[in-house]
Design a protein around this nucleic acid. Structure first.
Length: 444
RNA sequence: GUGGCUAUGGUGUAGUGGUAGCACAAGGGCUUGUGGAGCCCUUUGUACGGGUUCGAUCCCCGUUAGCCACCCCA
């Protein structure tokens, strides 16, 4: 950049004013955001932990497209669900195909499972995905229109131990992230169990209509299960005596759920039975659960860190063979928020050990080569080649906490040497340029 | 999708119906060969569009965005 002379010019006629028109800067789309370098340590921590945990429990990473046929989610998540009904980014491409940005990824994984013939491989298949999801919701803290999920699925087995394995993985994931979370778990049984329970619930509430809030009167007709998580004091009091779904499960459903809990007990994983968890996606059956951050801050509504459960009918619904499955989707944006709220310090990145400083054009030419030579030898380096002042460069090295500065100026180029400066003590020594790698290996 | 609150340089903030200070950050300098301190200089702003007014950053309306609650959910 060319700097104007420091000398202050007296009253300058300002011809610039005409060129000073404001250009509108394109704005980030509502509900979307840039994740900045300041936050990168948290995101990296999350990704590396997900990767490590996935490896430890035998999950294979797969990647599915962000764009999918709209139909996929209409048939899985449910036509009447909020997600499909009002939150999907759906549009027609130039071929007239109805496509959408994925609002979640479980259905995509099932699609991939079927399409790639994974049912012919050893069962169950353990798969995991990481990536952005899209829902056109009203943005709020911890809620974005583009948000990130890790997603772990075990497809191809109906045993309750699979449910427990999924929960164990999730438990480990949050623990290794450093997040204190608690588990809320419930079973919504088979579709038949649920239908029976719903009828019972509606009947029970009908006789108590007078005690319900306005909102709940609507729920009674539209979505009776939602009656259970109303926040009005009156409704909450009422709920305590309402029939609970666990009492309406069939014997096999109940046995399945009890087995899951027993595995968790064996693992000494604490959980809260929450008879009021009702998932908003149609495909869930039997075990459903979520993790909630254990924050001290009660002033804010608790947001779920993840949602998960069993979905034994989904693969078949999408045209595959009957295939039981269970999975979980931790929300990464929320995990990052929880890490910050709980003062988790993400692991530090490797710090540069050597700063390469230069002086003069010849020195600079030598310096860039020296940097490359040391990088190839495996050192972590840093520099400020675009600066000229040595002071500025040392300042920068100091700020970054680099222990050694290598200095190459005119003189050193002539002598074929390099100055090694120990930033701690301030001591300097001159070494042969060709011996610098072995010399630095001794020091670092 | 509904309602409430908010909007001042990159960040955090002050202030006023007569067009803005401060701190930090950033950039440059204090003999183009030496950092951690200090000093000097510089850049950058009233979200956008209207209205009221002689005059608006301040008052009003709209838009946009963020936050909060609801809805829902990760």
């Amino acid at each position: 950049m060319i700097k104007k002379p420091a000398a202050k010019a007296a009253p300058v006629a300002a011809p610039e004013e005409t060129t000073k028109k404001k250009i509108k800067t394109p704005q980030v789309i509502r509900g979307m955001r840039d994740i900045l370098p300041e936050d990168e340590p948290y995101w990296r921590h999350a990704y590396e932990t997900a990767q490590r945990v996935a490896d430890a429990y035998g999950f294979s990473r797969i990647e599915t497209p962000i764009v999918e046929p709209e139909e996929l989610f209409v048939r899985s998540v449910g036509k009447a669900s909020d997600i499909v009904e009002k939150e999907m980014y759906s549009f027609q491409d130039s071929d007239g195909d109805k496509i959408c940005l994925r609002p979640e990824v479980t259905a995509s994984l099932c699609r991939a499972y079927i399409a790639n013939g994974m049912f012919a491989k050893p069962q169950p298949q353990k798969l995991w995905v990481w990536g952005p999801m899209f829902r056109h919701d009203r943005p709020q803290a911890g809620r974005y229109r583009q948000f990130y999920q890790a997603d772990f699925e075990i497809i191809g087995n109906a045993s309750p131990i699979v449910d427990a394995q999924v929960i164990l993985l999730t438990w480990t994931f949050f623990k290794e992230l450093g997040i204190n979370a608690e588990i809320r778990i419930n079973s919504i049984g088979s579709p038949e169990d649920r239908t029976r329970y719903k009828m019972e619930l509606v009947q029970w509430y009908r006789t108590r209509k007078k005690e319900l809030c306005e909102n709940c009167l609507k729920r009674l007709v539209k979505n009776p299960l939602r009656l259970l998580d109303c926040k009005e004091a009156g409704c909450r009091a009422l709920r305590a005596d309402a029939p609970q779904i666990l009492d309406w499960l069939s014997a096999p459903s109940k046995a399945h759920f009890m087995a899951v809990l027993e595995y968790l007990d064996e693992l000494e994983i604490p959980y809260f039975l929450d008879p009021f968890i009702v998932r908003g996606l149609d495909y869930y059956t039997h075990t459903v659960f979520e993790f909630v951050a254990n924050d001290a801050d009660d002033s804010k509504a608790q947001i779920a860190l993840c949602g998960g459960g069993r979905y034994d009918l989904l693969v078949e619904q999408l045209g595959g063979k009957p295939t039981a499955a269970c999975g979980v989707a931790p929300g990464i944006d929320r995990a990052v928020l929880a890490m910050k709220a709980q003062n988790v310090v993400p692991p530090a990145q490797p710090k540069p050990q050597i700063f390469v400083a230069q002086l003069g054009e010849q020195g600079r030419r030598r310096a860039i080569a020296l940097y490359e030579k040391l990088r190839q030898a495996g050192f972590v380096l840093t520099e400020a080649f675009s600066k000229e002042s040595l002071k500025t460069q040392l300042d920068s090295a100091n700020e970054k906490g680099v222990p050694f500065v290598l200095l190459v100026g005119q003189r050193e180029v002539m002598d074929n040497t390099v100055i090694i400066r120990d930033m701690e003590s301030g001591n300097q020594e001159v070494v042969d340029y060709h011996k610098i790698v072995s010399e630095m290996k001794k020091k670092v």
